[in-house]
Structure formats: structure tokens, C-alpha cells
């Protein structure tokens, strides 16, 4: 029942949001170059810190934008939410 601050819409009910997991594991630049262990780490392993976690959320029932958030997993408090900056397409 938290309020989450969407960088686009402002504070909204948590039930409007979708949790998208860790924001710190990008898709590998060249998956074919990875061994089975390294690939498994990308597919399955995500940080699971007890404390601040950098995560992806989307305002699924609102503007539908994804953003990055830093949330303390001990308290569920959001420490920051920021828009994702576009990068040059690969």
C-alpha cells in the first residue's frame, strides 16, 4: 500500500506498478561468446541484496513507462526513482 513516485506521473498507488527485477543486469553484448556458467548467470542470477537494491519498475496501470528505482529491501522504502535514459541503438 505504498506510494511509488513515477518519474512521469508523480506519486501513485503501488498496485499500479509492476516490479521488473534488478536493473543492474543488462543483456549481454555477445551471448554467443559466453560459457554456460556465464550465460546461466545472466539468465537466472540476479542480485538479492538485503538493503538498497537498484531495480526496474514500470507504471503498468498508468503511463506504462519503465523507470529505475533504488529501494531498500529491508523496509521496502523507495530511496529514488529515475527515468531511464535512452541510449544509442545497437
Amino acid at each position: 500500500m505504498q506510494l511509488i513516485t513515477c518519474p512521469w506521473c508523480g506519486p501513485r498507488e503501488e498496485t499500479e506498478f509492476h516490479y521488473g527485477g534488478a536493473a543492474t543486469v543488462p543483456y549481454p553484448a555477445d551471448p554467443a561468446a559466453l560459457g554456460d556458467d556465464a550465460w546461466a548467470r545472466f539468465v537466472f542470477v540476479r542480485p538479492n541484496p538485503k538493503g538498497p537494491a537498484t531495480e526496474q519498475w514500470s507504471h503498468a496501470a498508468g503511463c506504462r513507462r519503465w523507470f529505475t528505482a533504488v529501494r531498500d529491501t529491508r523496509t521496502h522504502r523507495f530511496l529514488a526513482t529515475v527515468d531511464i535514459q535512452p541510449e544509442v541503438p545497437r
Binding site: 509492476h18 521488473g20 536493473a23 543488462p26 543483456y27 526496474q56 514500470s58 503498468a60 506504462r64 513507462r65 519503465w66 531511464i84 535514459q85 535512452p86 541510449e87 544509442v88 541503438p89 545497437r90
Partner: peptide, 16 residues
């Protein structure tokens, strides 16, 4: 739709 949105907004946000 969610998968696709996630991809274009988080993995490759530069895609037009």
C-alpha cells in the same frame, strides 16, 4: 506486450 515494452524501454531504450 509487457515483454516487448520492457525490452524497448530498458534493454535497448534507444530503439525508435
Amino acid at each position: 506486450l509487457d515483454r516487448m515494452e520492457e525490452w524497448i524501454q530498458t534493454e535497448w531504450p534507444g530503439l525508435r
